[in-house]
Lab assay of single mutants.
Amino acid sequence: IGSLMYASIFGNVSAIIQRLYSGTARYHTQMLRVREFIRFHQIPNPLRQRLEEYFQHAWSYTNGIDMNAVLKGFPECLQADICLHLNRSLLQHCKPFRGATKGCLRALAMKFKTTHAPPGDTLVHAGDLLTALYFISRGSIEILRGDVVVAILGKNDIFGEPLNLYARPGKSNGDVRALTYCDLHKIHRDDLLEVLDMYPEFSDHFWSSLEITFNLRDTNMIPGSPGSTELEGGFSRQRKRKLSFRRRTDKDTEQPGEVSALGPGRAGAGPSSRGRPGGPWGESPSSGPSSPESSEDEGPGRSSSPLRLVPFSSPRPPGEPPGGEPLMEDCEKSSDTCNPLSGAFSGVSNIFSFWGDSRGRQYQELPRCPAPTPSLLNIPLSSPGRRPRGDVESRLDALQRQLNRLETRLSADMATVLQLLQRQMTLVPPAYSAVTTPGPGPTSTSPLLPVSPLPTLTLDSLSQVSQFMACEELPPGAPELPQEGPTRRLSLPGQLGALTSQPLHRHGSDPG
């Protein structure tokens, strides 16, 4: 009997000691992992102490058991019943959930998450997105703005933001810190809205009876308010094209079509300037034949640059190039080494500058006005007194259609001029006259002087055409309008007829 009692007592005591040691061994194993994590990542002392304290409290609170892992091991129907039991206190005593059906309560219970916070733990920081609604079931918390405590909340209090009033989550206007050990039930806004969409009859009752104890939403960050730039940057990543407008005076608003859609830094370009900076079609017209890549860069430059609305530039004389043409100036200075066709295309550029300027006046029909002061630039669209967005969009579309028509007509005119030049060069190729044979009589004449090349004649003739079109064909006081194609086609051969009437002889060394 004594040996039996000794064996039973010894066996029970050893089993008890073994169970104690097993729990202690698990605790030390998990604690060792936490300390190894702290050492590996070199976490500083204040945060390291918070980690160790939280682990110790969580171990004593749950005995080292992962409740979520245990809950996920059950089937979904059983999980709903378990969640309904775990959140029964909240669902029974909170006013917004009263009167809900059994199915609605089960769906809500599945969406709730339980959070346990030790003292000093910050649940929400200032500036964080308010993605959830919090219900306090135990403990107390404090809300701070800077170093000032603005509120202390306790059991059955609710904090967050009214989700039904805002389409997008706002930002917190303060820090939420736990004063004691707290148990909180939180539900994400997407989950709550999903359940309320499934039960629309409960939705009206819920929003009407929901009383948020403390609204954390920062009202200064609401979209459309003066301080909402940061919020707009976070939620409006896919922005449309940006529009900046110059201020319109009362006198300017009476004149229709007073602005032109141009790229940034293009205030001095012609009315047909689009795409790359520098001139019509993204580059100076005089350098068009020598740089074919300008047409390839036109599309990307047009689509990537934001639109700006600026006044037209001052008018340019008909014979003056659009500006920024070092290529043609070098050719004029060193005409001995340049291609003979460069002079002809220089005359073509003069005609283009004249036609572009006159067509700009035809479509816009307003006098040039000086540029406004820099303080009046970049007025935002949302400022008071601005035109409605639809009106601005319609004006932009009208300007775009005008620019497209202008570009089409300029292309047709350019093709006409090039065809005339090619026809003239085919009839009378460039050549130098040879020395004529002296006559049989004693009164022999001296050799004839060489005839100037055709490109120079073409430049003079085209300059005469531009001056003739600019000065004589337009009646005084009438708006400057571009001439039609047949009129220009008839004027060019008439001007060139006198020049080509002389018999030109080919030089023996000319390969053409």
Rank of each mutant, 00 (worst) to 15 (best):
N156I: 02
S294F: 15
S466R: 07
D157G: 04
Y363D: 12
K186A: 13
R266G: 12
Q362L: 08
C369H: 07
E325S: 14
P455G: 09
S314L: 09
S461V: 05
M425S: 12
V195L: 04
E201V: 03
F135L: 02
S394K: 01
P200T: 04
F214H: 05
I222P: 10
I351E: 04
E194K: 07
V176R: 02
E473I: 14
E329D: 04
G263A: 12
P384D: 05
D175T: 09
P315M: 07
A498Q: 07
R389V: 15
S290Q: 15
W207P: 03
G154L: 04
R241M: 12
H205E: 08
T437A: 12
N164G: 09
I212E: 01
L133H: 01
G265Y: 13
I212Y: 03
M469S: 10
N350F: 03
R138G: 10
P430Y: 15
L492N: 13
H188K: 09
E296K: 05
R217A: 08
S411E: 08
M198A: 06
D147Y: 03
E365N: 15
L231T: 12
G270H: 05
L427N: 08
K333D: 11
P450S: 12
A371E: 13
S305E: 06
P306I: 15
E407H: 04
L420M: 06
L462C: 15
H505V: 11
I158S: 13
D330C: 07
S286H: 07
Q402W: 05
P340H: 11
P455N: 11
A470E: 11
S273H: 13
S382C: 05
S203F: 05
E201K: 04
T253P: 10
S314E: 12
P264A: 09
S208M: 15
L376W: 11
R302V: 08
S228I: 09
D252R: 08
G477V: 13
K242Y: 10
P429G: 08
L420I: 10
I158G: 02
E480D: 15
S466L: 06
P475N: 09
L184P: 02
D147H: 07
F135G: 02
G174N: 11
L459S: 12
T500D: 14
H185P: 01
I136T: 01
R361K: 03
A178C: 12
E194R: 07
S342G: 10
F468I: 14
N156L: 05
L262W: 13
L163R: 03
S236D: 12
M469F: 10
P450G: 10
E480H: 15
L421P: 04
S273E: 02
L165V: 06
I222T: 14
F312C: 06
I141G: 01
T253N: 14
F354T: 07
C471W: 01
P162Q: 06
P475V: 09
E480G: 04
L421K: 05
L184S: 01
G441D: 11
L192C: 03
T458H: 07
F159V: 05
M221P: 10
L262M: 13
P162W: 03
D183K: 13
S375C: 08
A412F: 04
T180F: 02
P447T: 11
F159M: 05
Q467C: 12
P429M: 06
G512F: 01
T337C: 04
E365H: 04
L341W: 15
K242N: 07
S140D: 04
G508D: 13
L216F: 02
R177H: 03
T458P: 12
N215M: 02
G233M: 09
L492Y: 04
E320K: 01
P271W: 07
L427Q: 06
K155L: 03
G174R: 05
R506A: 13
E232W: 06
R217P: 03
F354L: 09
Q255T: 08
C338M: 08
M414Q: 05
D128H: 01
A431E: 12
M328G: 09
T500C: 15
T253M: 07
D397W: 13
L153S: 02
L499Y: 09
T229C: 08
S313N: 11
E480I: 01
G282L: 11
E194S: 06
P280I: 14
V149W: 01
E480Y: 15
L459W: 13
G139K: 01
T253I: 11
L410Y: 03
L216Y: 01
D252Q: 07
G227D: 10
G268M: 10
L193D: 03
L210I: 12
Q424Y: 13
I158F: 04
F352C: 04
L481F: 12
L396C: 03
R368I: 15
M425A: 09
T337W: 06
P438Y: 09
L496V: 09
N378G: 14
H205R: 10
L341G: 07
S286I: 07
N215I: 05
S342I: 06
T443C: 12
E325I: 10
R506E: 12
F135I: 06
R248Q: 12
S284L: 05
L420A: 10
N220L: 08
S305D: 15
K251E: 10
G324C: 12
P374Q: 08
L184I: 09
P511D: 04
K171S: 06
S209N: 15
L449I: 06
D190L: 04
S383T: 05
V392R: 09
T437K: 13
L481R: 08
D204F: 07
P384M: 15
P200Q: 05
G268V: 11
T373W: 11
T180H: 03
